[in-house]
């Protein structure tokens, strides 16, 4: 079942996919090229009707990782996570916000707390807690952050 869905995804947007891990029937992790995140996510969200749930940014110390989690509510409820690996020094990837409104807040949050740049975000206002206490360039969720 889930294997069939993965096959279809590969067929549609295979050029961006670097690898697939099927953890179990409800959890799939797809490694993608960050440049193609918009195309893959749009395919899942628009063509397959998946619900955009949230994104997670992870500091792996050597690089940054962003996972976009989409839930295939109409096809058995499996959770598909699109994993993009970003450069440690200058993390940057295309924004999903112009396509999927649901990703607006989370991208602002990731940029604020993790320092990841989302190219093409329509409303990337400085939104760290309060500018009095949080100078530019301090990202509390990074591993090297010290309170």
């Amino acid at each position: 079942m889930i294997e069939d869905i993965v096959k279809e995804i590969k067929k549609a947007v295979g050029k961006w996919i670097k690898g697939v891990t099927i953890k179990n029937s409800q959890r799939v992790y797809i490694d993608i090229d960050p440049a193609g995140v918009r195309e893959v996510a749009t395919y899942l969200w628009k063509d397959r009707g998946a619900r955009y749930s949230i994104a997670t940014a992870i500091d792996n110390r050597t690089n940054f990782e962003v996972q976009h989690h989409l839930s295939l509510d109409r096809e058995g409820g499996a959770m598909v996570s699109l994993r993009s690996i970003l450069d440690r020094d200058k993390p940057s990837m295309p924004s999903l916000a112009p396509v999927i409104k649901a990703s607006d807040w989370i991208e602002r949050e990731m940029s604020e707390l993790m320092g990841i740049e989302f190219v093409g975000h329509p409303d990337m206002r400085r939104l760290l807690l309060s500018s009095e206490h949080w100078p530019e360039g301090v990202y509390p969720l990074r591993k090297d952050f010290k309170a």
């Binding site: 807040w105 949050e109 604020e112 707390l113 206002r125 400085r126 939104l127 760290l128 807690l129």
Partner: peptide, 8 residues
């Protein structure tokens, strides 16, 4: 626990 929205 995460979100901040600045008013304009």
């Amino acid at each position: 626990r995460m979100a901040v929205y600045k008013h304009k």
